[in-house]
Amino acid sequence: MEVGEFVFAIMMLVVAVLSGFALVREIKTRNFFAVLFAGASLGLFGWYSIMTIYSQLFAG
């Protein structure tokens, strides 16, 4: 297990959580352009971080 990749995945998970907060805030203000970008950021960073953590913990 490489520590650098694991730490980077945790940092990207924090970015994904912040994107989730931004998504909820922008839905409340009905700014749909920002909802698009916040949703895309949440999906991209969330998927990357979860899959990286999964592959680091359960590498075969």
Rank of each mutant, 00 (worst) to 15 (best):
M1R: 15
E2A: 14
V3Q: 08
G4F: 11
G4E: 15
G4V: 06
F6L: 09
F6H: 02
V7W: 01
V7I: 13
F8P: 05
I10T: 14
M11T: 14
M11S: 14
L13I: 12
L13W: 14
V14D: 07
V14K: 12
V14Y: 11
V15T: 09
V15W: 13
V15K: 09
V15N: 09
A16G: 11
L18Y: 07
L18N: 14
S19A: 15
S19R: 05
F21C: 11
F21E: 07
F21L: 14
F21R: 13
A22E: 05
A22C: 06
A22S: 03
V24D: 00
V24L: 01
R25M: 12
E26V: 03
E26L: 01
I27M: 05
I27R: 14
K28Q: 10
T29Y: 08
T29I: 09
T29E: 10
R30P: 00
N31L: 04
F32S: 05
F32H: 08
F33W: 07
A34L: 10
V35F: 06
V35A: 08
F37N: 02
A38F: 06
A38T: 12
G39T: 06
G39F: 13
G39A: 03
A40F: 14
S41K: 05
S41T: 09
L42E: 04
L44M: 11
L44I: 13
L44G: 05
L44V: 12
F45E: 07
F45N: 15
F45P: 01
G46A: 01
G46C: 02
G46S: 03
G46H: 05
W47D: 00
W47I: 03
S49R: 03
S49H: 00
S49W: 12
I50D: 03
I50E: 02
M51A: 04
M51I: 03
T52I: 02
T52H: 02
I53M: 08
I53F: 01
Y54P: 00
S55W: 00
S55E: 14
S55I: 00
Q56A: 07
Q56W: 02
Q56K: 06
L57H: 01
F58H: 07
F58W: 10
A59M: 03
A59Q: 08
A59K: 04
